[in-house]
Write a protein that binds this DNA or RNA. Sequence first.
DNA 1: CCTTTTGGTGGCGAGATCGTGAGAATGGGG
DNA 2: CCCCATTCTCACGATCTCGCCACCAAAAGG
Lengths: 226, 226
Amino acid sequence: MPTVLVVDDELKITRLVRDYLERAGMAVLTASDGPGAIAAVRAARPDLVVLDLGLPGMSGLDVTTQLRRSSTIPIIVLTARSEETDRVVGLELGADDYVVKPFSPKELVARVRAVLRRVEAAHAGADVIDAADITIDVPRRRVTVGDKAVELTATEFDLVLTMARRPGQVFTRSQLLDAVHGVAFESYERAIDAHVKNIRRKLERDPRHPRYIQTVYGVGYRFADA
Amino acid sequence: MPTVLVVDDELKITRLVRDYLERAGMAVLTASDGPGAIAAVRAARPDLVVLDLGLPGMSGLDVTTQLRRSSTIPIIVLTARSEETDRVVGLELGADDYVVKPFSPKELVARVRAVLRRVEAAHAGADVIDAADITIDVPRRRVTVGDKAVELTATEFDLVLTMARRPGQVFTRSQLLDAVHGVAFESYERAIDAHVKNIRRKLERDPRHPRYIQTVYGVGYRFADA
DNA sequence: CCTTTTGGTGGCGAGATCGTGAGAATGGGG
DNA sequence: CCCCATTCTCACGATCTCGCCACCAAAAGG
């Protein structure tokens, strides 16, 4: 049973949406402001968020960026404004779909179902990378070595993921910076070394003789294949 | 050497950008208005366009749509306006990246590099070279003879790759130095001999009678064809 | 056959490259 | 407002590589 978090400051709306979603067989949580929504996501890990953009205090867009910083949770945006730009901005910031107020509850339910279906389908695909005894769960952003979970920071995870997606391929430092930041500034290239060091500390049994992330002298690094 | 077209009506800016890009090893063309930009793209076929959105006459956005009508050339947009919507609109119209004025030239160079790299990576076909019983896996930077993996240093790999890409073609020592160092470095040409020696030791079954890297007396070396 | 020119090889030192610990910035959360 | 996690910077030492030299072998050329 999927869990949905509904975020809106108007009680009338949350109640209406809750009714319809529950009737469609989903568990529903509610929050009435941005901080509450973020706390609820962290605590209850719902499968989807329905978010009103017109919240008091923290703007809905701030909430989406905040959520996106630490998770890939699907978001459906509710907005009173129908202008194209708002729509684009919402999607740009990582919303998966949007519904314009006033909306029909049935339409909202249909969209929630559609997004959940889409996400589930994506989940079913190869979003888990297995190599030797290391497992990378991409949507959950979790890494396991043997049976032990490993805590990686966001940057560390992105680095490992980038390399593990093409095992054996050699990446230069600036390619790796590119993958992590979108843009590479040469002066920082040695920062990659520091990250690799920290990743190895967490991942490798013997960091002096790395089994996963190997150095290619004069070029960069690579994730071991085979 | 990639060619970049810089479009801006302010001479100060084009000159600044030209300086930085040229120092980064790129050829630079400039145009000061929309029609000029479109003509320059058609005539000189640059690899990338840096385009100021605030042009007199024809708007920068018109230029991007015009360019997009007939080509997929990468575009980086320069904009004085920092509002999200403009950014979104720019990207929406097919720009590959955007930089907000005032900008740091180093950042612009970094972004140009990143976009070029991205495009090149997408283009990259023929990633593996097969010749007789030698295999060169370019992204993995690995060489196999028969079934045996061969460990080459970065320079050795670049040398083999350079020659293997054009089997049969004879390369002078200074051409090979060029390929390895990027620039025409007046250096000891016999260094190539030393590398060839080391490569043969690793690659050839009988280094006295090389099957892959052959000496062309009085000229240089070549990678055996067929 | 001898000379001249060109290529092959072993080895070594300068310098590039990398690993690492310590600590400075940065930014979010309590 | 302070604290903590995260990321980046810096510098030093360890390691590896490359270009160079010296010397010998092989190939052209007369």
